[in-house]
Write a protein that binds this DNA or RNA. Structure first.
Lengths: 217, 217
DNA sequence: TACTATTTTTAGCTTAGTCTAAAATAAGTT
DNA sequence: AACTTATTTTAGACTAAGCTAAAAATAGTA
């Protein structure tokens, strides 16, 4: 089995590799892990020794097959626990991330199999992210970042990129949740801000907000 | 907060102190923690620095007020998770110990508060052990070890001392569970073995088995 | 009481994971 | 091409937790 730290690095590299496509910079990893580049280098080298990543000095890191398998298994656990926390324990969607960060490292195949069943095999977590199946397959949803949509286009919110409490509370305050219908009423070229329609209300959102909302058109 | 290892040592010392009443020997701790006496000494000294235990060289260890508080909080979490695993995820009572050993270290007050509510504030775990309340109070059940009972006494099984899979499976095989009525039909002085009545069956049990069953008379 | 055996502690080494500071490499700019 | 800046790696040190082997204290016995 792998240590907590190893699992966290693998998960982190997985997410970065998804976003930017291609080898991941050491600095990017260090930043996301809230640690120093030297520590990241250290861990990357250990992961490379175990053939969980392939790594060339100064060139960046990518996950190997087995690295991906470990990362996806952790992500599956994380998202299943998030569903549990929200559906069964009635947590708000902005409160669950930190706890799931801990729960995702519990080691027991059987536990996850049973949890999955108990939750009735959910496909998505409370933030709209797909839950990998037992074999590591992830449903690809063709979603669009709201900031890339243009005037008068519309769709429903299927996911969020940021999962920080502040951001999710911002959405709650405006009654925006997974499944909410959103329409772009206007878009400002200068700063990328938008005016959107949500239910019967319309309001202004900054580019930063728009970049963190995933829409299915 | 405390590390996993610190929490495990505190829990271990708590259990040993309960059993033998009085200061706990370093060797006893090392043995229960499956580690070496030198490692135990090391950790005990660290715990003493943090005032979680009081310790005098060569004399043994006892928990302080704050040490007890930490230990009891961990035990509360452990037992609540065991209830969850058995009641909600349908694990057998012999399968849950190891998983609960991991879950007991998840840090979140709120999580435990909600889990407790979700489980409808259980008083006992699946092995019959009382679950400490939020403030660390533990229900004292006046129970007797079966091996100390004498011929023709009877009572119901309210707890087990051993929680290993083999032992619990042994009980399952003989249809003995928490709540089962047990009567002592005979007792052999030479080796402490017994003949007991369980429902309509009667059978022979060794002293070792009898020492691990708690009965309420 | 003195000797032996057991228990406990100390001393020194190991590994995982972190850090800082310095060196090496890559990238960007004149 | 040469110089500057940014990124990445190496070197060396630290902490938590463990280990082995040796020393010290306690307990048990002749």
């Amino acid at each position: 089995m792998y240590t907590r730290a190893e699992e966290n690095y693998l998960k982190c590299i997985f997410h970065l590799e998804q976003e930017h496509k291609g080898a991941v910079a050491t600095n990017a990893i260090a930043q996301m892990m809230s640690t120093k580049a030297s520590s990241a280098t250290d861990m990357i080298q250990r992961l490379a020794d175990k053939e969980l990543v392939s790594y060339r000095r100064y060139k960046g890191t990518t996950l190997t097959k087995s690295g991906i398998a470990v990362a996806v298994a952790v992500i599956r656990k994380h998202r299943l626990w998030e569903v549990f926390l929200v559906e069964k324990l009635n947590f708000q969607w902005d409160e669950v991330h930190e706890i799931a960060e801990q729960l995702e490292h519990i080691q027991s195949e059987e536990l996850i199999t049973r949890l999955d069943k108990f939750l009735d095999h959910p496909d998505y977590d409370p933030h709209g992210d797909p839950i990998p199946d037992k074999d590591g397959n992830i449903k690809k949803t063709e979603k669009k970042v709201l900031s890339e949509m243009s005037k008068s286009q519309h769709g429903i919110l299927v996911g969020v990129r940021e999962t920080s409490g502040e951001f999710l509370q911002y959405l709650d305050k405006r009654n925006i949740a997974i499944g909410t219908k959103i329409k772009v009423l206007g878009k400002e070229f200068f700063d990328g801000s938008m005016i959107i329609q949500v239910k019967r209300e319309q309001f202004f959102i900054s580019k930063k907000i728009a970049e963190n909302l995933y829409i299915q058109v």
